[in-house]
Design a protein around this nucleic acid. Structure first.
Lengths: 228, 228
DNA sequence: CGACCTTTTGATTCCAGTCAAAAAGGGTGG
DNA sequence: CCACCCTTTTTGACTGGAATCAAAAGGTCG
């Protein structure tokens, strides 16, 4: 009997719930594919440790990142005609519970509290997906990067981690595929934010927001305002 | 006692469920604001007839459209700190049940079948939001428009309506705000699709896909391919 | 028929894409 | 510890497509 913790993203309640009697713990190496778009959807996954991206291939060596997922998150839920809509890949080494659909559904209909938690989680995911679309509707590279950092910061805060520095587990290519820019534009954007004094990068994966006002101004910017 | 039907978007089961004992039917004129971003979230809404958009204001006379919602859809669910994250407006005259949160929650925890239906609906919405983000990640205007038409067609099919012609209830400005282009670019894009013979527009709100192959090729296009 | 709003069209500007090359990391084995 | 290779990231020069602004055309409703 596996006891799987459903961590509320708000970090408040970490209620342990019997999710599935037949959940098995699986491990994946960094960069490993976990599920592929179009495959028959046999199971969902509940992340125990590590970071996962869901994405859609666009062309050879080109893809769109849909989400970054962290411990406590579930993926493999978005299904159409019994097949996965998105692919998933481990960004770091990952451990995750494999939850076969069948068992999941029977457990769902048994435990009403579990359903409520799923609803809460889905609403969070919906909110994040809408924020992502909002981000992508902005055309300026700097604004997109700032909104991306904002999102990562909020996720980090929701996990109860310190928020004075933002940790980016993914590489620049993944960031580019998430914010809808070329890797070159992402690089230039980060540099621009640094030289403007808005952020300070300890290394490629650790960023600190040094000018919160300018940062917020950038995100709220209705029109190109690159003053200073 | 109001009986509110939760229409499956797949159009299959239209199971009537006692959603809330205190649901009241509200009417809104075309263009009327229904909820505003930042307001205390007191109720969700269940659309009976008409079309609604949810959106976020960016600046004066500038906004980002998050979703188009149809009869059977629910909105006002995405909440943060007890306040609406998105605004909502009637695109056409709208009738909708107003579902106070309190009553909704008590009904939710009572009826387990209702929870399941909500989960299904949220998964659909998540899928659509992800598709929207995917759309916005493509940079070519023609591709975005084609993907938009595809989405509208699928929604229409899901409602069980005839699909030989796509009906667009919203104006060009709303389309522009959804696909992340300027109104000018949307106009040019439609014209381009027409002259290329990909679509045929009976009038501004009725579009027919006349060359399905070219249409699909456009959506799948990995790189600029404006041949023909 | 006329006033107003929506949509289209035209000319210019600008930002990000692209391609290619250089630089910086990261990991491995000597 | 260093030399090496390979991957990731940055930088540079050029191109292209959409934004912008403004003006004209088309629709709608009184």
């Amino acid at each position: 009997v596996s006891q799987v913790g459903l961590h509320s993203q708000a970090g408040a309640t970490v209620r342990a719930v019997r999710l599935a009697n037949v959940a098995s713990l699986a491990s994946f190496n960094k960069g490993a594919d976990i599920v592929a778009q179009g495959e028959p959807a046999e199971a969902a996954f509940h992340i125990v440790s590590g970071v996962v991206t869901t994405y859609r291939p666009i062309a050879e060596d080109r893809e769109h990142v849909i989400s970054f997922l962290f411990p406590g998150d579930v993926f493999g839920l978005v299904v159409e005609n019994g097949r996965y809509v998105n692919s998933a890949r481990a960004v770091t080494p990952v451990k995750a519970y494999r939850l076969p659909w069948q068992a999941l559904q029977s457990d769902l209909s048994k435990d009403i509290h579990l359903e409520s938690q799923i609803i809460v989680k889905l609403l969070q995911r919906l909110r994040i997906a809408q924020h992502h679309a909002f981000l992508l509707s902005r055309k300026q590279a700097l604004v997109r990067l700032a909104m991306f950092l904002q999102a990562m910061e909020q996720l980090q805060a929701g996990r109860g981690e310190p928020t004075n520095e933002i940790y980016l587990p993914m590489d620049r290519l993944a960031i580019a595929a998430y914010v809808g820019l070329s890797p070159a534009a992402v690089s230039r954007g980060f540099r621009s934010l640094c030289t403007q004094g808005v952020i300070r990068a300890r290394d490629r994966r650790h960023v600190k927001i040094t000018d919160r006002d300018a940062f917020n101004r950038l995100i709220a910017a209705p029109e190109p305002d690159l003053s200073c």
